Computed example of a mutant assay.
Amino acid sequence: MFSRHVSRAVAIARSVATGAADRKLLLRQLFEPASCTYTYVIADARSRDAVVIDPVLETAPRDLRLLRELRLRVRWAVNTHVHADHVTGSGALRLALSCPTAISGASGARADRLLGEGEELRFGAFALQVRPTPGHTPGCITLVLDDQSAAFTGDALLIRGCGRTDFQQGCPRTLYRSIHEQIFTLPESCHIYPGHDYCGHTVSTVGEEKRLNPRLTLSEDEFVRVMDGLGLPRPKLMDVAVPANLRCGIQDDAA
């Protein structure tokens, strides 16, 4: 059912002009078809400092190849939450590049840096600001570019959807409030880059999702009823992925 999406081998390159004339952002969106996961490589095009968001273990060789081709220095390999449907590649990147890993302190996971609300991940002239967006899991975060032109929402807000709330201490009421208070308060022009897509979308905006997202335009109580009634199957890799991702995917405990 995803053949059209997968066959395109999504790897979208975008150069984004920011408000500051002396800054130029490089953004690559990469797709992993088995879990329909997006990995993001964002970099200061001048300094070549980069951040990798939500890498996947199986596609770490691809990501490493791209990073070397573009001559990027990874300052952080960051996860938006503890994933249940794939093993993160952040540990593999750490071992290959000696780059530190990062994740929310509320996730309960191991990483070189545990992030809290309002903290920043700096790369060159840019920074990603941490906004807690729990509900899918208690440790979910959204990473917002410092000029608020882009938000990397992980599994909290998807394009015309949202993350499920029926495992890993998820809570639909918490997720609804997180999205409305932490993401929908961003400028309507802010681009939304989700952690997954299952329908062939690549990017949205805050304004689009506020108007068109069929779940998030509901009242809070209606949203809770919908989420509680989804009846989705359990993620196949959950028993493998969650323990590995609590260690940021690092396979060697001595590393």
Rank of each mutant, 00 (worst) to 15 (best):
S35F: 01
C199F: 04
R4N: 03
R23T: 15
A255S: 10
P214W: 02
L27Y: 07
A241L: 05
D252Y: 00
T142M: 02
R75Q: 14
S98N: 08
R14W: 10
E208H: 13
G170N: 12
L128Q: 05
V16K: 13
D147Q: 12
F223D: 03
Y38V: 05
I250R: 05
G170M: 13
G154P: 12
E120M: 11
M227G: 09
F126L: 09
V74C: 03
S47F: 01
D253T: 01
Q148C: 13
F123C: 06
C171L: 06
A20I: 13
R62D: 11
G249V: 03
A17V: 15
V16S: 10
L26I: 05
R247T: 03
R247W: 03
I12N: 12
L230P: 01
A125H: 07
I42N: 01
D44H: 07
A255P: 00
A241I: 09
Q148Y: 07
E181W: 05
I53V: 11
S47C: 02
Q182H: 10
G19W: 04
L175V: 04
F2N: 06
T18P: 03
G163Y: 06
S178W: 09
C171K: 08
T18H: 13
I192Q: 03
R68H: 02
H5G: 00
F152Q: 14
N245V: 12
L95Q: 08
L158D: 08
V130E: 11
V10M: 14
R247Y: 04
A9P: 00
S189E: 13
V6S: 10
R234I: 13
L30F: 14
T80C: 07
P55M: 06
A111E: 01
R122C: 15
S98W: 03
T37K: 13
G163K: 02
D252Q: 03
R173V: 08
P214G: 02
C140V: 02
S35V: 00
T59F: 07
S90V: 01
R73K: 14
H81C: 13
T59C: 08
T205L: 04
E120D: 09
A77M: 05
R75N: 13
A111Y: 00
G161Q: 08
R14A: 15
F2E: 08
R122P: 10
L145C: 04
A109K: 09
H136R: 10
T88Q: 11
C36K: 06
V78F: 07
G249N: 08
T133V: 15
Q129D: 11
P194R: 04
I12H: 14
G170W: 09
R110E: 14
P134C: 06
H191Y: 11
D252I: 02
V87P: 04
S178D: 11
K236I: 07
S90I: 00
A150K: 12
P172M: 08
E222K: 12
G139P: 05
G105Q: 11
R46N: 08
L145Q: 05
I159L: 14
D252T: 01
R68F: 00
P33V: 03
A111K: 01
L212N: 15
R46K: 13
I103L: 07
L232V: 02
